[in-house]
Design a protein around this nucleic acid. Structure first.
Length: 635
RNA sequence: GUCUACGUAGCUCAGUAGGUAGAGCACAUCCUUGGUAAGGAUGAGGUCAUCGGUUCAAAUCCGAUCGUAGGCUCCA
């Protein structure tokens, strides 16, 4: 007999060799059904792998992140098996899970196109129907090498060669197919019934462009058909909400070959941008920031001094005149340092907070730009907090409070935090980095924020906290960042006079909350699908006179709204009502007022509300205060 | 940077034995003054991304360049 300890501390006895599945069954049939793998003494186990001795066991169910991972991992094996059947010469790279599904990198002689995915899915279905047992086997390194060499799996051989000598290597077999894998996996291929292959793309072996280019096939799968359908619906929805598409439809912005990856804002898009800017200025002023502005073009020597020359040159634009070399700023920090250094500061003034909606240019490599999400002309909602070392934590907490307030104003109440540490290319001593990283972690802990560590992903001058917001479709976007910097103040020889009368070097906190206005607007467009909340919408109300006869009266209503600060579109074209309503709907205007005989004769207006079947009946005064209330509440 | 795909009117897209372009919407003019998602007629609009090659002939085949998309790598 052996004792299995459950997560709640209770203990159950089983014959040695019983599995986690036996345990799950003994607890409830429901749990047995939902279980997919287990953690035994911390190690991942297949559900039906025998447990030999007393252990601590927790069951992994399909609903959890770990469970999803197992399910997708098994699905990628299923896909690989199907590909190997259809393309016997295929060589397998790696097949991990990612956010939103799984992929497998595969080398094939003939290229696989998106049109081939259907037949791979068909083959997957066959394998699923065959319901092969998925069995685990342990191999020595030699055995594993011998096996995969025989199979001509060159990439697998390379992977095995890189494993330590004494490592126990595991492989999983289903039917005729065996793959190198740590596991765990579902018990049989019949468990994998609802899947969809989504895309093919190229990827380099081990992510290195010098290596062989492989075909990456992406897919997704779920235990239940309903879940798969919902997921596919979300993907469709995301396509519909594509901000590049909506940007064109709603006439917000455009891109032109004359200035690749730099947006041109059209009047309606400019309204969005200005709305965001007004909001941003107001809230920053309220939080003790002072706005500053620094030039776009600064002498090259400044960038040597700041460290950008050595660490950021590839991303910078340069220009030359009067026989001097200048650089177009990719960041605002050096400019702000010059402002700080322009006068002598007392410790009593600190923290000094310089904010700038800084327009910076970064030469992003071609191929990485993407609509508003990744541009070369970036409006950062930048600010630099100069403070004493003692103030660091409190100031970082204040920035996090502001982050919280701003995100919640936009309805982003769910966000993840990452702490990124020292990258390879960086400036400053180890001690300084250590100190900075600790300070950031302390601030996060003192605010009770959960975060994950992102090793080696910091800025070149300091570690950073990144904020990733979740949009309406559950997608995650990196926006805010807080970066702690001990180096740049030193490089610029910044000083403040302390209480002791001597000079000290301040600490600098770089921070952006929206990230870039361009990206943030892109996110908002997709988050709302173009249906902006009243406070943000370029057009809040559309007015549609039934015919020219009512134009004068409609104009009066229009003016009344405009005087109340409401953004109105007055559509007095001589078109039919239905036609103008259709256009207003396509423009996603939230409120449409049709004005004709009825309105002339009564105080009550019939207001068409977007996404609502019923007309709102209100007087002009009530309607104005209704909208004003919405604007105030930001909904 | 790199892989794959794409680039035809303002927009969405047709257009493969290679024979100098077509639809709908939008736009202009006229008729229609219309009550909650498209009224009608007429018209204008394109060096088929750019450059070069093959050919009697190129939107169509080939190459290069530019741009865009989806990846990889990178990143706000």
């Amino acid at each position: 007999m052996m004792k299995l300890t459950l997560p709640d501390g209770s203990v159950k006895e089983f014959d040695s060799g019983a599995s986690a599945y036996d345990l799950a069954k003994s607890i409830s049939p429901r749990l047995a059904k939902d279980s997919i793998a287990a953690r035994v003494n911390g190690e991942l186990y297949d559900l039906k792998r025998p447990i030999e001795t007393d252990s601590t066991v927790s069951i992994i169910t399909t609903g959890t992140e770990e469970g999803k991972d197992v399910f997708w991992h098994s699905s990628t094996h299923l896909m690989a098996q199907a590909v190997k059947r259809l393309y016997p010469e295929a060589k397998l790279g790696i097949g991990p899970t990612v956010e939103g599904g799984f992929y497998y990198d595969i080398y094939t002689d003939e290229s696989i196109s998106i049109d081939d995915l259907g037949k791979i899915e068909d083959e997957m279905r066959k394998i699923s129907k065959s319901d092969f047992q998925v069995s685990r086997s342990e191999l020595s390194k030699e055995e594993a090498l011998e096996f995969f060499k025989k199979e001509n799996e060159d990439f697998k051989v390379e992977l095995i060669n890189d494993l330590p000598e004494n490592e126990t290597i595991t492989a999983y077999t289903q039917g005729e197919f065996t793959d190198l894998c740590r596991g765990p996996h579902v018990a049989s291929t019949g468990a994998l019934r609802h899947f969809k292959l989504l895309n093919v793309a190229a990827a380099y072996w081990r992510g290195d462009e010098k290596n062989q280019s492989l075909q990456r096939i992406y897919g997704v799968s779920f235990p239940k058909k309903k879940q798969l359908d919902e997921h596919l619906f979300m993907l469709e929805e995301a396509k519909k909400r594509d901000h590049k598409k909506l940007g064109k439809q709603l006439k917000l912005f455009s891109f032109h070959a004359e200035s690749p990856a730099m947006p041109f804002w059209h009047p309606m898009g400019m309204r969005l941008l200005n709305q965001l800017i007004d909001y941003w200025k107001e809230i920053h002023f309220r939080h003790g920031y002072e706005e500053v502005r620094s030039p776009f073009i600064l002498d090259e020597s400044l960038w040597h001094r700041s460290g950008h020359w050595d660490n950021y040159k590839e991303n910078m634009y340069f220009t030359q005149f009067d026989e001097r070399e200048f650089a177009v700023k990719p960041m605002n920090c050096p400019g702000h340092c010059l402002i700080f250094d322009n006068e002598k500061h007392s410790y009593k003034e600190l923290p000094i907070k310089y904010a700038e909606l800084g327009i910076v240019h970064r030469h992003e490599r071609s191929g990485v730009t993407n609509g508003l999400f990744r541009v070369r002309h970036i409006t950062q909602d930048d600010a630099h907090v100069y403070c004493t070392p003692e103030q660091i934590e409190a100031e970082i907490v204040k920035v996090m409070d502001l982050v919280e307030e701003i995100y919640s104003n936009f309805g982003f109440n769910d966000y993840n935090i990452e702490l990124s540490t020292r990258p390879e290319k960086s400036i400053g001593s180890d001690e300084i980095w250590e100190k900075a990283e600790t300070a950031l972690a302390n601030a996060l802990n003192s605010k009770g924020m959960k975060f994950v560590i992102n090793e080696g992903d910091g800025a070149f001058y300091g570690p950073k906290i990144d904020f990733h917001i979740k949009d309406a479709l559950g997608r995650s976007w990196q926006c805010g960042t807080i970066q702690l910097d001990f180096s740049m103040p030193e490089r610029f020889d910044l000083k403040y006079v302390g209480q002791d009368g001597s000079e000290h070097t301040p600490v600098m906190i770089h921070r952006a909350i929206l990230g870039s206005l361009e990206r943030f607007i892109g996110i908002l467009i997709e988050h709302h699908g173009g249906d902006f909340p009243s406070w943000f919408a370029p057009v809040q109300v559309g007015i549609i006179p039934v015919s020219d006869k009512y134009e004068d009266f409609a104009k009066e209503v229009n003016d009344k709204l405009v005087r109340s600060g409401i953004r109105v579109k007055f559509d007095n074209r001589s078109e039919k009502v239905g036609y103008k309503i259709r256009e207003g709907e396509l423009e996603k205007i939230r409120y449409l007022l049709v004005i004709g005989e009825n309105e002339v004769n009564s105080d009550v207006f019939s207001i068409r509300v977007r996404h609502s079947k019923e007309l709102l009946k209100m007087t002009a005064e009530d309607f104005i205060s209704h909208i004003q209330q919405e604007i105030k509440n930001k909904n």
